[in-house]
Amino acid sequence: MAITGSYIMVNGIKTYYETNNGPTDKPTIVCLHTAGRECRQYHGMMELFEGRYNMVAFDMPAHGKSWPLPGNKAINNHKDYCAFAWAFVEAMGIEKPLVIGCSVGGNMVYYIAQHYPVAGIVSMQGSTFIKALSGSYGTVVDLLDHPYISVQHSHFDFSESLIGRECSEAAKDFILWGVAQECGVAKKGDLSIYNNYDVRGDLDKITCPVLVIRGEDDWNVPEHYCQEAMKGMVNSKKVVWKPIPGYGHFIIVEAPEIVCEAIDDFMQHLDPADVASRA
């Protein structure tokens, strides 16, 4: 196994990242984890792509092994999230990466493609618009760092309900272990970002190739979210749609083989100039 972990300072935050130390003759794949979790979600994909693509996954501030923001805070809006992600890319010296993300990360890649020079993006279980502040979902977010609430206990069922029917027991266990390790402050920050997201007005700014992946058992991200996003990206060089039946919200953990195969196919749509510049 070629995965190694290390730290790098990003905007004054000691940031943990892992890489599979893959070849750099193709765009590096920079990975964004799901809400409240951390970069280990990409281990399966990193192992599959070992020797084929260079993958780098990092823990956002207050997640996993990365330090929080000053005052033990987490990022709570999408502009700061994406600015930090890009600061990480620059600190690592990565040029024109393929940025991939799942869940909240799958939402963020659209904003990143609108504002930063990427070779392409992969949105998994993502959307360009989320408005869920009312009703039970809003209550869930408000209670995530309440002193009477154990976030690991109270969020277990929510995460379990998002997992697809074909997911292996081992992958399911790891996803639920992720719940057991969540920090309420970090989770509340991520779901605050998730809830107030709307980048539909700038979808025509996305020019790079885009791969949209959706595990079909994910009730939280219905297909019309993906369809609306793809419809809006009128200037993208290529938009590829990959629905995956039987799997759910944590597609990178649930079905890394299928996701890697889709990304491998998608790589051919990236601008040859971006690829050639690395050789």
């Binding site: 869920a132 009703g135 039970s136 979902y137 069922d157 309900s161 998002l162 009730w219 939280n220």
Partner: peptide, 8 residues
């Protein structure tokens, strides 16, 4: 359960 309680 969650599907039935999701306002979305």
């Amino acid at each position: 359960f969650q599907l039935a309680t999701s306002p979305k």
